Simulated scan of single mutants.
Amino acid sequence: AMEELERALAEAGGTGAPPAWGGRLRGLLLEELERGRDELARPRSGYATPVGVAVAACSDTLVGVAPVSPGMRVDPDVASEREWRVGAALAGALCHAAALPAPSAAEDLVMLFGELESHLVLAVPARHGDAELAAVAYEEGTAGIDRLRTRALVLPGHVLDGAHGTLSAPIGLVQHPLRVAEAVARLGGRPADDESVEAHEDAVLALLGVTTAPARPHDDPDPARRVARRILQRLHGMGKWGGFHTEFSHLARGFQGNERALADSVGEALLAEGLLSEKRSVGQRHVFLDPRRARDIHTLIDTGVLPKGLTLP
Rank of each mutant, 00 (worst) to 15 (best):
residue 307 P to C: 12
residue 158 H to L: 10
residue 301 I to M: 12
residue 214 P to H: 06
residue 280 R to F: 06
residue 238 M to V: 07
residue 199 A to D: 01
residue 232 L to Y: 05
residue 1 A to G: 13
residue 16 G to I: 13
residue 134 A to W: 02
residue 119 H to D: 13
residue 263 A to F: 11
residue 201 E to M: 09
residue 296 D to L: 15
residue 207 L to R: 04
residue 148 L to C: 04
residue 234 R to T: 04
residue 309 G to E: 12
residue 184 V to Q: 01
residue 100 L to R: 03
residue 187 L to Q: 00
residue 51 V to E: 07
residue 17 A to V: 12
residue 154 V to T: 04
residue 239 G to L: 01
residue 63 V to F: 03
residue 207 L to N: 02
residue 50 P to M: 04
residue 16 G to R: 12
residue 252 A to W: 02
residue 141 G to A: 05
residue 235 L to G: 03
residue 63 V to R: 08
residue 148 L to K: 03
residue 126 A to M: 12
residue 249 S to R: 06
residue 46 G to L: 10
residue 279 K to L: 03
residue 68 V to D: 02
residue 216 R to M: 06
residue 8 A to F: 15
residue 18 P to G: 12
residue 121 V to L: 02
residue 198 E to V: 11
residue 70 P to T: 06
residue 211 T to Q: 01
residue 215 A to L: 01
residue 109 L to S: 08
residue 241 W to R: 05
residue 5 L to I: 15
residue 142 T to G: 05
residue 221 P to L: 01
residue 272 A to E: 14
residue 38 D to L: 15
residue 57 A to V: 06
residue 189 G to H: 08
residue 280 R to D: 14
residue 70 P to I: 07
residue 237 G to A: 08
residue 24 R to V: 15
residue 48 A to E: 14
residue 84 W to G: 09
residue 102 A to S: 15
residue 287 V to C: 01
residue 256 Q to C: 04
residue 249 S to G: 04
residue 300 L to C: 13
residue 4 E to K: 14
residue 312 L to E: 12
residue 42 R to F: 10
residue 140 E to F: 03
residue 202 D to G: 07
residue 198 E to A: 10
residue 153 L to W: 07
residue 268 E to H: 14
residue 105 A to F: 10
residue 77 D to L: 02
residue 140 E to D: 08
residue 5 L to S: 09
residue 73 R to G: 10
residue 206 A to W: 06
residue 174 V to C: 05
residue 210 V to Y: 00
residue 29 L to Y: 08
residue 159 V to W: 03
residue 81 E to Y: 01
residue 197 V to N: 00
residue 60 D to V: 05
residue 246 T to W: 02
residue 110 V to K: 10
residue 174 V to P: 03
residue 200 H to T: 09
residue 248 F to H: 03
residue 208 L to G: 02
residue 154 V to Q: 00
residue 265 S to V: 11
residue 312 L to F: 11
residue 234 R to Y: 02
residue 53 V to R: 00
residue 284 Q to C: 10
